[in-house]
Design a protein around this nucleic acid. Sequence first.
DNA 1: AACAGCTATGTTTGCGTAAACATCCTACGC
DNA 2: GCGTAGGATGTTTACGCAAACATAGCTGTT
Lengths: 330, 330
Amino acid sequence: MADVAQRAGVSAQTVSRVANGFGGVLEETREVVIAAMDELGYRPNSAARALKLGSFHTIGVISNTLSTIGDIRTIEAIAHSAAVEGYTTTLIPLRAQSEGAGRVYSRLQELAVDALILNIETQLLERAEVLLPPGVPVVLMDTGADDAHVVVDTDQFDGARQATRHLLSLGHDTVWHLAGPEGSHPAQRRAEGWRQTLAESGRDIPPVLRGDWTAQSGYALGRRAAADPGCTAVFCANDQMALGLYRALREAGRSIPDDVSVVGFDDTEDAGAYDPPLTSVHQDFADAGRRAVAAALAQVRGASGSPRMDVVPTTLVVRESTAPPPSPGR
Amino acid sequence: MADVAQRAGVSAQTVSRVANGFGGVLEETREVVIAAMDELGYRPNSAARALKLGSFHTIGVISNTLSTIGDIRTIEAIAHSAAVEGYTTTLIPLRAQSEGAGRVYSRLQELAVDALILNIETQLLERAEVLLPPGVPVVLMDTGADDAHVVVDTDQFDGARQATRHLLSLGHDTVWHLAGPEGSHPAQRRAEGWRQTLAESGRDIPPVLRGDWTAQSGYALGRRAAADPGCTAVFCANDQMALGLYRALREAGRSIPDDVSVVGFDDTEDAGAYDPPLTSVHQDFADAGRRAVAAALAQVRGASGSPRMDVVPTTLVVRESTAPPPSPGR
DNA sequence: AACAGCTATGTTTGCGTAAACATCCTACGC
DNA sequence: GCGTAGGATGTTTACGCAAACATAGCTGTT
């Protein structure tokens, strides 16, 4: 910066003013300074700026894995929303740092971020395996209500309820459920929504088949569901598991939706190209990401009036994988 | 830091030594300092550290979208590898900044990164729509050879060749191709590998059906392929398009693999749960990410001996979606 | 003509850190 | 007992920037 100032024949402060687009600089001076900046290939040092301003203009996203489509869409939405606000997004993969608790600790502590968005299993937080740096605003996503933090949650429960009701309203006696893994809050809530809806209608509640979000697990569990002739409707905790279920049903000679109806969750891009196109609960990942960023920045900017809990609605998208159950006499 | 020093009764420099794990500090002193750090909730200011050291310990990843599974796996691998090396990863979604070229310029120029990994379409670079900050090491992924930069490329061409040869060796007269979008280098190379392999064997080259990576486009194009009775083998530019093709074929009453064989590309996790499980060209995203990070850090550390071009091999994974063509007299 | 009020620019300062250098103390050899 | 080596710690400094304050010049008012 000093070089630029000298070359332009002005003070460093004036260069700073030009670089930041502040007023109070003669148009003529500005042009000279800009020319000098170009000639010298000057670019501002963001470390110095961050040190001076006390802010990195960066949001950190902590995610245990990027394995599910949902995680990815969320991160994409966060990065996008943050960029619009002039913030960059730092990715903090948790797994890599779990080697040695001390490591996680120090790494997170030193993080050059103004705020953190956590998209991890709540139990990790509770077990204090993730020691958050004190004083950094935190937004939790897809986790239970938490008194200490701002939470942005997708309405998993209602989505599961819509899916289950849809299947019941088609005439199915009950609905099976391929659930997500135990530690996952979304998996938990979806299972609860399903169970409670069945219970309210006084239906039998089939055993929960617990998978791990992968299509492979959907296939493995699906074989058990397919083997039960009483199973005419299945609600899957995500689309990928539904894909595995499709294969299991077809191998068992049961057609979709004539013999068995299937509903997924997430409404990923692929769902419409499944065979048949999958009825699925749509999650608005973009909206959730936007709200998380907004909540994080609100805290950064000191606005304490932000809601402690922000719920993003879900909607059922009906395609061709659901139909009334086969008539008994068929 | 000064507070910690005062509380511990030592100088700031000693605190710095403890914080960085340097030697030359008495065990006793170290304990006192650590106690003081804990009591005061001290955490090092990474902006100041970056300013002092001239390095951010951060790698930037520029990606146009995160829409395809491949992009995502790559980014995950980069973030993971970077974390292992003690670097954090900053996500720079290109789309968000394209609003106004000047915006892109300034944003990229100021980026607080030690190196950049680009995973974008080459043409954007060539058209100078992305003005890279001078002096920052750059690694290009999945793009053509480039004299000016280090490139880490997956062997798309050979993968396509393996897929095509596999189908020909099963006895198919020729192989159709559902290609990726025009601007994409991987799409280009996969199409070339397919075309050249057919040409070498003197086979007819069916029209290229160009899609956009989505299952939807795979379905739309697949209907055209399915309508041609001469089409008994299709090589898809990615697994998602193969999924769409599956549906199109089934709707046309053609079974996989008895009537039509299908090969995908990427070997995503889901591929093994397609019905039937998809034969696909495996890409080692983790390895590619690791190499990109290694190449980037090699440049950061000044080692100029790194190769200019690093090619990650691909391997065909044969599952159940490929078989000999139906016998004419069947 | 004197002064206030404004705009354009310059000067000083400190953000938190770690390298470089300076100092102190202890142990050991002769 | 003196000198020296080496380990432990303190002091000074600069990294690049922008806020705060200072200054200079100019306009318009009385």
